[in-house]
Design a protein around this nucleic acid. Structure first.
Lengths: 151, 151
DNA sequence: GCGTGCATACTCGGATATAAGCTGTCCGAGTAGAGGGGG
DNA sequence: CCCCCTCTACTCGGACAGCTTATATCCGAGTATGCACGC
């Protein structure tokens, strides 16, 4: 199981955007973190499609947070970048092979999928308990603001 | 984020093995679930290397659970098949790019990695709370046993 | 009848192709702002 | 002095390659069982 590296990039970008008073272009966000410009743009597009950030075109355009940092959770960002599909997908192998269970036993979901789904729910709940504002509080926001105001 | 399909196979196999009194060959386990023989063998090898199941060679050989089903957790199987590496790996991008933080601020781990690690810990704890015996209780074990005794 | 040796068939394990998804890149459509010209 | 037009430069968005990883497969080494033979 591997989480996309874009998740880390997107979270850092959201922290930066929470400290910015003006739109920040994707190229500048990439330079701020030293990552690929074009690939970051791809992930930022996902965030925009999810309604987390808002793009503005033209000169002096860029991205702005669409909601207050306190109302954006880490889970929102992870789901936007990594996709909403669960990591574990039951393929119903209990209905295949030599010991295929009869359909009347398969009305309830498979016990294995229940356990995996419960674990993922715990994972999501943990991510949902932290907001971008909480993350920003753990960084040196004054340094971010000073770098942002340089330009 | 996508979890290997082999995890599902391995868990089902462990449930079957918990009901078997004799060694079950990997090919038979594959036929029981209608999955690829050779690929399942690969995952069973991982389980054996992790000390969860024990192989026996030669005729009438196969795999047997190495511990009691109550002492094997779902997390053990997941870690054996999917690997022990965490899904999120911090690449320390806070030290790169134009707003690279000075090293003295990087003694503590990055706040983002802390949040992600905490979520994965919750995920693992949830998986660790269920054992193979619990899973077997949610299946029709009599059906499994009858099919196993057919041969 | 019993012990020994051998042949056999079955088992696991690692080395080898194929497909999918993440990573990274490129170019084009569209737009807000700035500057110059005219009224 | 103010308004309008154009022009430019900059922005985002989707379409296009490269590479790591998961998936699936094949073949060889090793071993417990069963049988036949000799004692």
């Amino acid at each position: 199981m591997k989480l996309s590296a874009g998740v880390e990039w997107a979270l850092h970008c959201c922290v930066v955007l929470s400290q910015a008073a003006q739109p920040v272009p994707s190229a500048r966000l990439a330079d701020l973190h030293g990552v690929s410009r074009t690939y970051l743009a791809k992930h930022l597009g996902s965030l925009a499609k999810a309604g987390i950030i808002q793009p503005s075109e033209g000169r002096d355009g860029g991205y702005v947070l669409m909601r207050a940092p306190e109302r954006i959770t880490v889970l929102d960002v992870v789901r936007a970048v990594d996709g909403p599909e669960p990591a574990f997908r039951c393929t119903e192998i209990r209905q295949q092979g030599d010991l295929a269970a009869p359909p009347e036993q398969c009305r309830r979901p498979c016990g294995i999928s229940v356990v995996m789904a419960r674990a993922e729910q715990a994972w999501r709940a943990s991510l949902d308990a932290t907001t971008i504002a909480d993350l920003a509080a753990s960084f040196d926001t004054s340094g971010i603001r000073s770098v942002l105001s340089d330009r």
